[in-house]
Each structure stands twice: as structure tokens, then as C-alpha cells.
């Protein structure tokens, strides 16, 4: 079955959201160079070389399911040492606190998850901006990062969210977008990369990011 030479990338399935697309996208970009496994088994997550932590839906439900699944410790252990990719709510959960459900999260990044407030949001023509922030928006590079290799400054990715993370410091912000104000889309530190939008739904640029994660070698 599994050859020892191929790295194992575990996609953590704690019962929240559609993981079909993220799994298929990883299988496509891995091109037989890595085993992609969608798993709810803490032992598999513990044995994986890299871990993908997705999440969709309401954040309190995600946190509750993560706790109930018995996967939380395996996720924290992976985030402490191995290449780790948080996507959407999986990225939000890495912060300290969320306005959604007023709850504490995993606290790996300093900052809060806050809601877009549509009553205060207008575009340059005075048209009101809708929430959820839904559609293709531009990604602006704040810091170089290996996962952004081959992706242009200003490239568009697909977003669909009403809440976003607001880091306390911008020292770990890699990518920003604007709606209408600038906000952090990707934060990174050491082995962890967290992205608010959906690379698995962002056409070739999104697939490039996932491919970069498959190829990512930690350099420390």
C-alpha cells in the first residue's frame, strides 16, 4: 500500500464541511509524490508528515466537533512541529478568540476573529458592500513566503466568509486583501501557514499554493 518513501499528508476530518474538493485538489497537485489521506483518526494525524486543517460552517460548531472528535491534541502536536496548513475556519481557529459565539480558540496566533460590518461598508462609488464577502478578490504580498512561489502579487482567490482574523501584530501577515479596508488573509510562522480564503476553489493560482505546500521543506 504505502511506500515508505512518500510523505503522508493528512487532511483532518472532524466532521465540518465539504472536504471532497480539498482532497481532490491535493490528489491532483501531489502527482503521486505524496499520499493524501482524509482522516478522522488521531493516530494517522500523529503519523503524518504534513497536516491540512480545513473547516467550514459556524465556528462554535467547528470547535465543538474538534473537541468531541478527539483530534484536537493531534492537531496541536502537528502545528507545533510539522508543515501545517489551516484553511478558512481551520485558519480562524488558530487565533486566540472569536466574536462568533464569543469563544476562545486554539491561540497559536495572537489576535481575534471579527465580523465584517456591512452597515459601515461601501465601495468607491458609494455602493454598499455585501456580507458574506463572496467572490474573487485580490491578494497583496506583504512578505515573501515559500507557499506563494509562482503566484503573482494581485492574483485573485475565491473568498466566502463573514468573519475574518485580525492579528494583533502584522509581523506574521504574509498576504492581505481589501474589503473595503485592508485585512490579513494569510499569516505564517515557522511551520504554520493559515489562509482565510479557499485555495481549493481558486483555480490555477489556488492549486499552485497547494502544490507549494506539498513541496514545502522547512528550512530551520
Amino acid at each position: 500500500m504505502m511506500s515508505a518513501s512518500k510523505p503522508l499528508i493528512a487532511i483532518v476530518d472532524y466532521g465540518m464541511g465539504n472536504l471532497h474538493s480539498v482532497t481532490k485538489a491535493f490528489e491532483l497537485v501531489a502527482e503521486q509524490q505524496a499520499h493524501i489521506v482524509l482522516t478522522a483518526d488521531p493516530a494517522v494525524v500523529a503519523s503524518a508528515d504534513k497536516v491540512v486543517f480545513p473547516g467550514q460552517g459556524a465556528m462554535p460548531d467547528c470547535l465543538r466537533e474538534l473537541n468531541a472528535s478527539g483530534l484536537k491534541q493531534a492537531v496541536l502536536d502537528a502545528a507545533a512541529s510539522r508543515p501545517f496548513l489551516g484553511i478558512c475556519v481551520g485558519a480562524q481557529l488558530l487565533f486566540e478568540h472569536s466574536e462568533e459565539g464569543d469563544m476562545d480558540c486554539l491561540g497559536l496566533f495572537k489576535g481575534r476573529v471579527v465580523k465584517f460590518k456591512p452597515e459601515n461598508m461601501h465601495d468607491a462609488q458609494g455602493q454598499k458592500l455585501k456580507v458574506p464577502h463572496m467572490g474573487w478578490n485580490e491578494m497583496f504580498i506583504r512578505r515573501e513566503h515559500p507557499l506563494w512561489h509562482g503566484i503573482n502579487d494581485g492574483e485573485r482567490f475565491y473568498f466566502v466568509h463573514s468573519y475574518h482574523f485580525a492579528p494583533t501584530t502584522d509581523a506574521e501577515t504574509v498576504i492581505e486583501s481589501a474589503y473595503p479596508d485592508r485585512f490579513a488573509v494569510c499569516v505564517a510562522r515557522d511551520n504554520i501557514f493559515a489562509i482565510q480564503c479557499h485555495p481549493e476553489k481558486s483555480h490555477s493560482a489556488g492549486l499552485q499554493l497547494l502544490k507549494n505546500f506539498v513541496n514545502w521543506k522547512l528550512s530551520f
Partner: peptide, 29 residues
């Protein structure tokens, strides 16, 4: 959803929350 990596919406004949779940699990966003 296994070949096209952009958002997919599906409608028609959705009667209960469980129908929504089945479509999402199949790859609808």
C-alpha cells in the same frame, strides 16, 4: 468537483436539510 476547482452551486429538488448535506458531501459548495 474532482476536476474543476471553482465554486459549484447546486439547486433543484432540495426538500430537507439532509438533501443539503448530501449535495455538499458530493462536492457542492
Amino acid at each position: 468537483a474532482s476536476q474543476v476547482f471553482i465554486p459549484l452551486t447546486v439547486g433543484g429538488g432540495v426538500r430537507k436539510a439532509d438533501d443539503v448535506r448530501r449535495l455538499l458531501n458530493a462536492g457542492a459548495d
